[in-house]
Amino acid sequence: MDAFRVTKHPVLKLKQNRKEIAFVFEDQPYKAYEEDTIASALLANGIRMLRRHEESGSPRGVYCNIGHCFECRVTARGEEGVRACLTPVEDGMVVSSGKQLPTPFKEGDQ
């Protein structure tokens, strides 16, 4: 879970001795630290794709990271449309990503 962590910094004080927590994304277990957001926890684990576009299925990840763009929305705590960038990850949290949805009424899809 530390592949992408900042491990050395000349100015900033790095967070240390943080409590480790476990969570699940797309049925896979991952580890994170307390204070991580869902987005930072997943990126620290090397996961960039957070959902697929409802219609085209194109892969999407974090874009603005401050809650403006809603690209990082996932399902967490049983709630849809949760912004991974603004939501602290919790121990035991189950997170799942948005999938491509069928478009039965769209022209040419028959």
Binding site: Y63, C64, H68, C69, F70, E71, R73, G81
Partner: peptide, 8 residues
């Protein structure tokens, strides 16, 4: 008209 309300 989508989810972000046109912010982007």
């Amino acid at each position: 008209m989508g989810y972000c309300g046109g912010r982007t």
